[in-house]
């Protein structure tokens, strides 16, 4: 019981972080499913959403700031696709990936210039950042809300993809790019729509993520971005439920590893700090490599065969 009591806070915060990763991971997995591109800039778009919120909240009431932040972020995602990826549609995959890395570099440097590299405090959003007590532990309300909100958004997204025209177009494009084009699908619109959905979810995710953190710095998007990508690979890239499940697993594992020292000390297995927390990031990547080596298509990925 004591052990459970000591693990519980980490478990709850892990589920919450997992939900936030899930919202970012969907952007990765959808873009990869259609363009076969690791959108390295996605994590930085997530960071920009945080920064925009900081600046907007300083000059206007929150009920204006939040929708405006989402619109600006979505516009950024749309512009990135049009400017940096669309011209390279016929280029080799490596060029597009390099372009994505270049965009990520540009966004980080731009953010560094605008903020002066200082930590920007994220505004407190009423209600969701209130402190509440659950199961005898104190946390902010956002921790509890995140998993539910994530599941609602994901269900909505899956319905959109399975039951609307644009969703059908997306599925067609991800199956076969060229044939879909021949069937009269306007490929550029579909790709733009993918980026819009992805960045929209990242904007929501950033709101939930940064509420629990001290602030936003230009590099704060890089790590969550990479982890969300790992989650997408873990669940089988291209599959939305896979990405969400992968993200929850990674979030929970990471959070428990962060607290493993404390938990084991309560348990009595170890008597001094081992420093497992250092490996909370490394664990994610170790998991990635294990998955890639033993099941490259992930948990729910489709098997593909290369034709010569």
């Amino acid at each position: 019981m004591e052990l459970l009591q000591s693990i519980l806070p980490y478990l709850i915060s892990g589920i919450s972080v997992g939900g936030q990763y899930a919202l970012i991971a969907i952007g990765y997995t959808m873009v990869y499913g259609i363009l076969r591109l690791i959108n390295f800039a996605h994590g930085d778009v997530f960071m920009v959403a945080g920064l925009v919120m900081v600046y907007l909240a300083g000059s206007m009431p929150l009920y204006f700031a939040i929708p405006l932040m989402i619109i600006i972020t979505v516009a950024l995602g749309f512009i990135i696709e049009r400017v940096a990826y669309k011209p390279l549609r016929t280029a080799p995959r490596m060029s597009v990936m390099i372009s994505a890395i270049g965009v990520s570099y540009l966004i980080q440097n731009l953010a560094l210039y605008i903020t002066g590299g200082l930590n920007k405090n994220y505004p407190a959003i009423p209600w969701i950042s209130d402190r509440i007590t659950v199961f005898g532990m104190e946390t902010s309300r956002v921790t509890i809300i995140t998993p539910f909100l994530t599941v609602i958004l994901v269900v909505a997204l899956v319905l959109l993809i399975n039951h609307t025209k644009i969703g059908m177009a997306m599925r067609a494009v991800s199956k076969d790019f060229e044939t879909a084009q021949l069937m009269g699908i306007k490929i550029n619109n579909v790709i733009s729509m993918t980026f819009i959905i992805g960045t929209f979810l990242a904007a929501i995710g950033s709101m939930l993520f940064f509420t629990n953190f001290i602030g936003v710095v230009p590099t704060s998007g890089a790590m969550p971005g990479l982890k969300a990508f790992v989650a997408a690979v873990f669940g089988g890239i291209g599959s939305i439920p896979g990405a969400v499940i992968g993200a929850f697993i990674i979030g929970i594992c990471e959070s428990i590893i962060k607290g493993l020292d404390t938990v084991l000390m309560v348990n009595g297995s170890i008597t001094e700090q081992v420093g497992f927390a250092t490996f909370s990031d490394a664990f994610t990547f170790a998991l990635l490599i294990i998955v890639l080596v033993f099941k490259p298509t992930g948990l729910f990925g489709e098997k593909t065969t290369d034709k010569v």
């Binding site: 995959r93 990936m97 990479l226 990635l288 890639l292 490259p296």
Partner: peptide, 14 residues
């Protein structure tokens, strides 16, 4: 290709 890229990136982080 990109799986290799992300795996090596992961190793550098480890």
């Amino acid at each position: 290709s990109d799986y290799l890229a992300i795996a090596t990136l992961g190793f550098a982080e480890i």
